Every structure is written in structure tokens, then in C-alpha cells.
Simulated scan of single mutants.
Amino acid sequence: MLVIGATGHVGRHVVTGLLAAGADVRALVRDPDRADLPDGVTLVRGDLTDPGALAGAATGVDGVFLLWPFFTAELAPAAVAAVAGPGVHVVYLSAMNVRDDQDPALNGFWGEVERLIEASGATWTFLRAGGFATSASRSCATTAAPPTH
């Protein structure tokens, strides 16, 4: 499985879970020396803005976890074409506001990336998530007493 976004808050958990399940994990990273990912992960230097590097990273994988970090889908056609296609299952971290029953133009760039994946010939899973409580464990441990009046 190729994980795109492996060094971020969500991607790190995806990598850890895949390793725990015994999967072969390949991570696309800009700087392998700074990736700080667990042992057992194959690091591949690349970036979503470089379709050639993406295609090389995706060679031979049957699954891709995609986190799209941009606020536009401008680069998405080339990126999706490089990693998705028949025989590949793409798990895309989309957004909860994407709806199948509304005009695609109203779904923003997340919906555009979904449409590109659907058209690629890959099988897919779209995770239409809301916010993630990345600091919840820290704030729970340091909760202050309520103010007194």
C-alpha cells in the first residue's frame, strides 16, 4: 500500500495501522531523512506535484491512501492518473461536505478529486470525514479547573 500524506497527523496512523496488520507499506515523502516513520516502511522520495515521481512510487502497488493537501484540484488530474487505475484500490480522505445528491461544482476540490478517482478505473473508498481531534489527548490531560465567579 502506498501512503500519500504519511508524515501528517492522519497518515502516520494509517501507516501504523497498516504495519500492525502486516501490510507492506510504502510512503511517499519529500525528504526521507526527515520522515521519522516506523521501521518497515519503504520510503520513496516524491511529491504530489511531480506525476513522474508519483507513478514511480505507485508502481506495483494495489492500494493507495491519498490525502489531498491542496485547496484546489488543479494538480489532481495528473496526480490521480499517476496513482490510480484498474487493479488499484484508492482510499481517499475527502470531506464530510461532499454529497452525491448535489451538483458536483458545489462539492469543491474534494468532490473533484473524488470524480477523478471514480473515472480512473480504480476501485475506491471515500472517507468523508469531519474534523480530527489531534490535540484532544493533550487537552484532556491538562484540563484546568473551571473558573470561579
Score class of each variant (00 low, 15 high):
T148D: 11
F65H: 11
D101H: 15
A122D: 05
G60V: 04
F109I: 01
P51F: 10
G60Y: 01
V80T: 04
D31N: 14
G130A: 13
V25I: 08
F70I: 06
A82V: 07
G121I: 13
T134Q: 10
A6P: 12
T134L: 09
G131R: 07
D24F: 06
G56I: 02
L66Y: 05
H13Y: 10
F65C: 06
G108D: 03
A35P: 04
A145T: 01
A23K: 15
G130L: 03
P146W: 15
S120A: 13
L43M: 14
V3G: 06
W110G: 07
E118R: 15
C140K: 02
V83T: 02
G52D: 13
P51V: 02
D24C: 04
H149E: 12
T123D: 13
T42A: 12
S94F: 04
A129R: 02
A144E: 00
G56Y: 03
G111K: 06
R30L: 10
G11E: 14
V41K: 07
V83L: 09
T42M: 12
R138E: 00
A6I: 13
G87T: 02
G60F: 01
N107Y: 03
L48Q: 10
V29N: 09
A73L: 06
A23C: 13
G52C: 07
A136M: 02
D31F: 09
R128H: 07
R26I: 15
L19S: 08
D24V: 05
M96A: 10
T16A: 11
M96Q: 12
V88L: 06
H9P: 01
G22M: 06
L37M: 07
T148N: 05
W110F: 12
V88Y: 01
A57D: 04
H13I: 11
M1Q: 09
A95I: 10
L43G: 08
G8C: 07
P69G: 04
P69A: 06
V25P: 14
G11R: 08
D103V: 08
A27H: 08
A76H: 07
P86T: 04
L75F: 06
F126M: 03
W110R: 08
S94P: 08
D50Y: 05
A105F: 12
V91E: 02
A95S: 10
L28R: 14
A58F: 04
D101G: 11
T123C: 02
H13R: 15
V3H: 14
L127K: 06
I117G: 00
V80F: 02
I4P: 13
E74Y: 02
R30T: 09
V64D: 05
T134V: 12
G63K: 04
P146D: 15
R115H: 07
L75T: 08
F65P: 04
V14I: 05
P147L: 05
V83N: 10
I4M: 13
P77C: 09
D62K: 09
F65N: 06
H13G: 14
S135E: 13
G111M: 05
G8S: 09
L43R: 10
A82R: 01
A81Q: 07
L75W: 11
G111D: 04
T72F: 03
V80P: 09
F109Y: 08
A35G: 10
L66Q: 04
L37E: 15
R99F: 04
P77N: 12
V3I: 13
P147Y: 00
A6G: 14
A78K: 13
L54T: 07
D36W: 03
A57L: 09
L127I: 15
G17L: 05
E114G: 02
